[in-house]
Write a protein that binds this DNA or RNA. Structure first.
Lengths: 359, 359
DNA sequence: CTGAAAGCGCTTACAG
DNA sequence: CTGAAAGCGCTTACAG
């Protein structure tokens, strides 16, 4: 049963078909209207070179006239260009993921691609295998967001025949060399943030970590290397989840230690939770403890105190990722723009260390 | 050119096909393996009743064995069940939208549906028409998120032949009667929040409004009706956008008026911006002015002060929306669970009105 | 209950 | 440069 929407002020009408026609206009209708064979119509649709300009124009006019749109299913089945990406991701709502998805969608839409989504429900091999199988439609391309275990596994489980690009963490060594992967320099970002905090006079910096089973957390790596380079002690990182609550819990633990004066959050939500915990524990931010976040989500600037953080432009990265995919499918496509660089955004949540006698 | 991913620890191997086979297994392969005609395979795939149980089992075993998955394109072309929804929406990142999308995706995945996304780039008739045309694939169903002008226009521009459900604002009168639409009771939610503030002793409540061109803002309607019912003055609503910055700007204006002691934000981001503005203007929250948000995004609980807000469960609504769609396609499908009710979550950002001589 | 036929709307060689 | 042919993998009547 098909539902018919009620009153229809903006009803789409092509204006030329005889209103009662139930099926959409096909390549044959266009051919008839233009007075050519339907194969010729196919040629002009696909930009085949050997078509006389005059007949090409004729066909285009008919296409325009009839409001013809090629049937994607038929096209896919016949092995034509499909122009569709499906993004394989473990999440669609967390900041980095949703912003990346937004960028991918924008770029895909601009290129005339349809976009599909498939979320990875777990990192179990069977689930990964199933998700990959379902996402892999014959002519369609894939983008995988490989920011945690499930995504990483999905990326490596891809059949070798599918065109696929990926948003990944910084590859180790030259692993990313020549691969259609894009990434943000999380290591530099974390190091910048850590150095900034150290420069404020803090003895060391603590780190509230985002999850990273099965891969190395480059944010953690950057934090550690900056600490080591400065000869500062390297405290144990506090493992958290992705959301403010886990930051809050980590913050409660950190607040109990009077030696803690500076904390780097693995993302802005974690930083928010940590700030909240400090507040409840009666530790002033940034008076007693300085906090820096990661990503610069739209809320960061309006938190109280306003969150100092390091901006990572996931939307732009998503666009670059799609451009990379397009390049794979069509080597004449424009090269992806340079990937975004991290940028430290100084606001209120971090300040000079107290000149203390202790520690 | 197709890119081949490097080392492949988790390579998906069905284990039965002769490794070098380039094309996926088809209905014919299954038929050959099971010793039946391919039409019979089609019948068991589609759960056709007239198949001898023993041959059904034979075919199923072969399907399992070969790791067969029907080609969606072929299926669509032949007019079979497509099992795909594409969601038409003006946004994928704002809280209500992304949470709704998440719910839709979860339910769709559970039902074996593929999900597509198409974002509406503007409310221009030409763009709406184009987006609807591109989103309307022959056998595929649609869900439109009609929370602002573009979505509302898209919903009314749908061709009558497509199966479509929608997440909408509260319909006027009986317009929503019998339609495959789901909605949250924004009016009640806003009235509850307003009444709560009034109950705290505030003389009246101001409202920072989300955009609503071309439709009535039910949050505003609920706010106004609660004010009127209580005999409180109804101040002009302050028009905002969707993000914290616009709430901040509205907040700056509101902060300049000493008579303002209570504000309802059209969403949590707006409330966050308003709180920030109050803070900068030296007006304590909730000491000088009380603020209540809308939606209860995950960050709300950890803001400073923690945001009192009215929770709207968009993810659950998204699931209900998909269930509604499924019902449309298959009347034997389970009825959608009851829609979520708004729930006032009292935290710290609203408090008793100051016992003042003025006003 | 199960085969053989026809066709979904397209594309890609193959002839002219 | 442009037709006519064959086929993509499936489904739905039509015969048996």
């Amino acid at each position: 049963m098909i539902y018919v929407t009620g009153h229809n002020p903006c009803m789409v009408v092509t204006g030329h078909t005889s209103a009662s026609e139930p099926r959409p206009v096909s390549i044959r209708d266009v051919a008839a209207a233009a007075g050519v064979s339907y194969q010729t119509v196919s040629r002009v649709i696909n930009g085949h070179p050997s078509v006389k300009p005059s007949t090409r124009d004729l066909v285009r006019a008919a296409i325009e006239d009839l409001g013809f749109r090629p049937n994607r299913a038929a096209r896919a089945l016949a092995g034509g260009p499909v122009q569709s990406v499906t993004v394989l991701t473990a999440d669609t709502t967390r900041y980095g993921y949703r912003a990346g998805l937004q960028g991918i969608e924008e770029a895909a839409r601009a290129a005339g691609f349809a976009v599909g989504i498939r979320v990875l429900e777990s990192a179990e091999p069977a689930d990964i295998k199933d998700a990959v199988a379902r996402a892999t439609e014959p002519g369609a391309a894939l983008i995988v967001i490989a920011y945690e275990k499930a995504g990483v596994l999905a990326l490596s489980a891809l059949p070798p025949t599918v065109a696929a690009a990926a948003m990944v963490g910084i590859p180790e060594g030259d692993e990313g060399e020549g691969k259609p992967w894009v990434w943000l320099d999380d290591r530099k970002a974390a190091a910048d943030a850590t150095r900034y905090l150290l420069g404020l006079g803090h003895h060391t910096v603590h780190y509230a970590a985002i999850p990273s089973p099965g891969r190395v957390d480059q944010r953690m790596a950057g934090w550690r290397s900056a600490l080591e380079a400065a000869g500062a002690p390297v405290p144990a990182a506090v493992q958290c989840g992705w959301n403010p609550r886990s930051g809050y819990e980590a913050g409660l633990a950190l607040a109990a230690d009077p030696a803690v004066t500076a904390i780097l959050g693995g993302n802005d939500d974690l930083a928010l939770g940590v700030m909240r915990a400090m507040h409840e524990a009666g530790r002033a931010v940034p008076g007693d403890v300085s906090i820096v976040g990661f990503d610069d989500m739209p809320e960061a600037e309006f938190m109280n105190p306003a969150l100092t953080t390091v901006r990572q432009d996931f939307a732009r990265l998503g666009r670059a990722c799609f451009a990379t995919l397009l390049r794979l499918l069509d080597s004449s496509a424009a090269a992806p723009a340079p990937w975004p660089e991290p940028e430290l955004i100084v606001r209120e949540s971090a300040g000079p260390a107290r000149r203390a006698g202790a520690s």
